[in-house]
């Protein structure tokens, strides 16, 4: 058994833009995921962060093969998912589950909690008699912290946090190895977010789960992830252990993201470096040439940045960065022109 549970290799998901009345002509592509390599180790939590529209949700779905990849491979525990279809793929789904952002819309409003939970058992022939199923359902409610009388009620009768617990219980019904959690707490009240994150951590310890947690909230990812990948416009720009990433970000985009987190101390807040990004996220239908980030990068260099796409390269063991000048920026050999990067105070 290898150490790596999920191996994503050169994954691309391009959505065609179609136009036409009689015949749909493809006039272009949205490069939602454009060449991603990553490996998720057994039992770890891999956090994926990025702005809205950077392709992180699409990547999560492609890992579960809910979106068809255009190119590249997703190898799950030694099996290339792209080779599977129909019944073998359906069987494989038992081992990888998803937790959704919006707990209400991801639960069928017409099904009681009981039938929502039984569905997974039934789909994979895990329901062995009424007695065993009832016991299993009680156990599931117990581990996610829902009252036993929840079974006969309907999703709209629960609070947001409870609904997310139902969603998590549903994912657990089939005893998966991997859970992809797509923004699992962003639709919840802040007071409930921590509860759900702690629940996810408890479950990981209890069942030996592997997580891919997708979020735009850096604090959420820091709380839960062992390793973090930062996505920008369909590609991973930096990947490192969570601590290393937060203390020593090497990619300009990561530095900008981290510097945007406010610090709850007015003096530190005034003194610390703030990197203000100019402009908007470019359209994924027409990504910039060269480094995807060069249009907004304060450290942009005239030579290679707009022509050559930097590969994700290891600058230290376990720390990968997709920037031509990562070392130079870190060593202070390249400085950002004032005005783009301003130190307030």
């Amino acid at each position: 058994m290898s150490d790596v549970l999920v191996d994503v290799d050169g994954l691309k998901v391009h959505f065609p833009i179609k136009r036409g009345i009689v015949h749909d002509r493809t006039v272009g592509y949205v490069y939602a995921v454009d060449g991603v390599d990553l490996a998720i180790r057994r039992g770890e939590t891999y956090g994926l962060v990025g702005e809205s529209g950077c392709g992180k949700s699409t990547l999560g779905r492609a890992v579960l093969r809910l979106s068809e990849p255009t190119a590249g491979r997703v190898v799950f525990d030694g099996t290339d998912l792209a080779q599977l279809s129909g019944e073998p793929l359906r069987r494989m789904r038992r081992r990888m589950q998803m937790v959704f952002q919006d707990p209400l819309s991801s639960l069928d409003p017409r099904q009681s909690v009981q039938s929502l939970l039984v569905e997974g058992l039934r789909a994979h022939e895990l329901d062995r008699g009424a007695e065993a199923t009832a016991a299993r359902l009680r156990e599931l409610l117990d581990v996610v912290g829902l009252p036993a009388n929840a079974l006969r009620r309907y999703p709209h009768e629960f609070s947001g946090g409870q609904r997310q617990r139902i969603g998590i219980a549903r994912a657990l019904t089939v005893e998966p190895d991997l859970i992809v959690a797509d923004e699992p707490v962003s639709a919840l009240d802040v007071s409930v977010q921590a509860q759900v994150l702690n629940l996810l951590e408890d479950l990981q310890a209890q069942f030996g789960l592997t997580y891919l947690v997708i979020a735009h909230d850096l604090a959420v990812v820091r709380h839960i992830a062992d390793r973090v990948g930062v996505m920008y416009l369909g590609g991973i720009v930096e990947e490192a252990d969570a601590d290393a990433l937060y203390t020593e970000p090497r990619h300009p985009y990561t530095r900008a993201l981290l510097s945007a987190i406010p610090v709850p101390d007015p003096e530190v807040e005034d003194r610390r470096e703030q990197i203000l990004l100019t402009g908007d996220l470019p359209s994924p239908a027409a990504p910039p040439s060269g480094c995807r980030f060069h249009t907004r990068c304060p450290w942009r260099q005239p030579s290679r940045c707009d022509t050559e796409r930097p590969p994700l390269r290891e600058i230290r063991p376990g720390h990968r960065v997709a920037c031509h000048y990562a070392e130079d920026i870190a060593a202070g050999r390249i400085t950002a022109p004032t005005g783009l990067s301003a130190s307030r105070g």
Binding site: L66, M98, S105, D108, G167
Partner: peptide
């Protein structure tokens, strides 16, 4: 989402 969820569930 809930149809996607059912699909993901297999």
């Amino acid at each position: 989402d809930h149809v996607l969820a059912a699909r993901a569930l297999g």
